[in-house]
Nucleic acid binder design. Structure first.
Lengths: 115, 115
DNA sequence: CTTTACAGTATCTTTTAGTATACTATGGTT
DNA sequence: AACCATAGTATACTAAAAGATACTGTAAAG
């Protein structure tokens, strides 16, 4: 981790791709089931607006995490899939999920102890 | 990662502790050198305001990541250290740093190719 | 007697992230 | 002729994060 220079840290670069109310869960869905159409994904994310979903997907596409395929049809058909490169985020998401699970347990335990 | 239910994902719980413009670098400094006084840390974070630093440290303290020790002296002396529990974040930060480093290389390469 | 260091708090403003709602084009269905 | 689904865009708004700036109390140093 550049032990001697936290200034050179690149944690933020990874973080910036993962943060947001919707990105982790979008990525988890895409990791689980490779291709999704726009509305299919939207249905799996209750509460998200079209604008938000479009924005998140464009940002992921810009970073080569997600691949967007447009089929020239009417009505439109657009498929989103995780890229090979995007899959390299899986261990990080996995580690965060495990840490988060443990953290939640810890907090619940703490609250129980206090009551 | 609860392969079948991204809805149950706890990635956000870990993420919420790590995100922000300052938290990762604060944690890296504390991981590297265990105890810091308030102003010592502030000097290592060019551009941060006192308010921000206080806020970030309080949040980390609330999650038991950081331990705050007040010495009843004048002028005040307060020390911040990472907790044992806080150290459990190290592998995640490490993984993100490595991913981020690679990602930065990838982007630079891409820009070079385009020019 | 003024200044400095320490570790903050109190207000206010700006920036960014996210939400709400309406609108587009096209073709097929009722 | 009206309506539905598709995958969006446009505009306006609210909430949350971050920044700027000024202030506090105490003791020691100059």
């Amino acid at each position: 981790m550049e032990e001697r220079q936290p200034e050179l840290c690149r944690v933020e670069d990874a973080l910036s791709i993962l943060v947001g109310k919707w990105k982790p869960i979008i990525l988890l869905h895409l990791l689980q089931e490779d291709t999704h159409r726009f509305n299919e994904l939207k249905r799996k994310l209750p509460g998200i607006t079209q604008k938000m979903l479009t924005k998140q997907l464009r940002e992921l596409e810009d970073e080569d995490i997600v691949v967007r395929t447009v089929y020239p049809q009417v009505p439109p058909k657009v498929e989103y899939a995780i890229s090979e490169y995007g899959r390299s985020l899986e261990p990080i998401l996995e580690a965060m999920h495990e840490w988060g699970q443990n953290h939640t347990l810890r907090k619940n335990q703490k609250n129980k102890d206090e009551s």
